[in-house]
Write a protein that binds this DNA or RNA. Sequence first.
DNA 1: GTCTATAAAAAGATAGAC
DNA 2: GTCTATCTTTTTATAGAC
Lengths: 188, 188
Amino acid sequence: MTNSTRAGKRERLAGAAVRVLHEQGVEKTTLADIARAADVPVGNVYYYFKTKDQLIEAAIEAHGHELDSMIEALERPATPQERLKALLRGWIGHSDLTARYGCPTGTLASELDKRDDGLDRAIAKVMGRLLDWVEAQFAAMGRQDARELAVALFASYQGIALLTNTFRDPGLMAMEGRRLERWIDSLS
Amino acid sequence: MTNSTRAGKRERLAGAAVRVLHEQGVEKTTLADIARAADVPVGNVYYYFKTKDQLIEAAIEAHGHELDSMIEALERPATPQERLKALLRGWIGHSDLTARYGCPTGTLASELDKRDDGLDRAIAKVMGRLLDWVEAQFAAMGRQDARELAVALFASYQGIALLTNTFRDPGLMAMEGRRLERWIDSLS
DNA sequence: GTCTATAAAAAGATAGAC
DNA sequence: GTCTATCTTTTTATAGAC
């Protein structure tokens, strides 16, 4: 087998892990679940990842790359206000998935915090990159309190994702999303 | 042994479970952990609870009673604005604990959602009672959009609790708490 | 009613055939 | 490099002595 095939399976496992960890949570997910989703035999997983931790770490990295791509796409709109609203609309667009499984980043962060491996720091870094991007938008709007506003917006999203998930009601996310859009408009 | 002793151990187990589940999470917590915290032999747990699920359910109920007591205490201030700000200050007062373990209700809701027993509905009901109380305060302020405001406030709290936990920074909670106090004042 | 010892099941990890 | 079979550990749950 060539190296490219090897890389392919590794990435397939990491990609499948992102999906399955979001749907089932870290602790309820077995290596067998991920292997099945990636169409790889269970025992073979250990050729690519020495431990379950290393596979989770790869999943965090893969999820981080997805978020980085999202951020890149969000750079298109001309004004920071429009960019932030595009972010909000992206979140609202996933409200059905959020109602079922919560925010992928938030649920992962919450669960990894309970483990004593260092993986909670990895997901914190990923979340930090998105938070920094939001802060940059508020700064571009000329706000001195950009960090505080970024934390507020991000917290509102994480919180409404949790409520949407807990009450299984995508409508909550749509309602709060509209409110946050009005709030962003009011800041200009 | 008398019934009162029996009830005592049952409640001690449920109370210990509330604490340990908050600190370690549902999935990382074993019955042995809870038994140790309650000072009860492991095997004896099954005399009081037939399954782990039933013990978790009792913990949810006990946590619900704690929240109900908190709500009762929050009724003291004369105006709804003061009552909401008292709630905020209570949250801020727990920011160190939140930085270490997250919001007890939110982390529980997030984790229980991944299980296929029905316990996620139980924690949703508990959270719903607090949300309803917040809504009642906004309604008492004469707001027609009381539900929307209640969802927004509660989401902000749940979200900032998650960020506070993820970044291990109690200061985030203090900062957002002050912002929310100003926001409540601005609504009158 | 209380507790110990142990069974049963699940999941992570490894050895070794191919 | 790939995969099967199996070992080990952990944790839930039960049987039965006291």
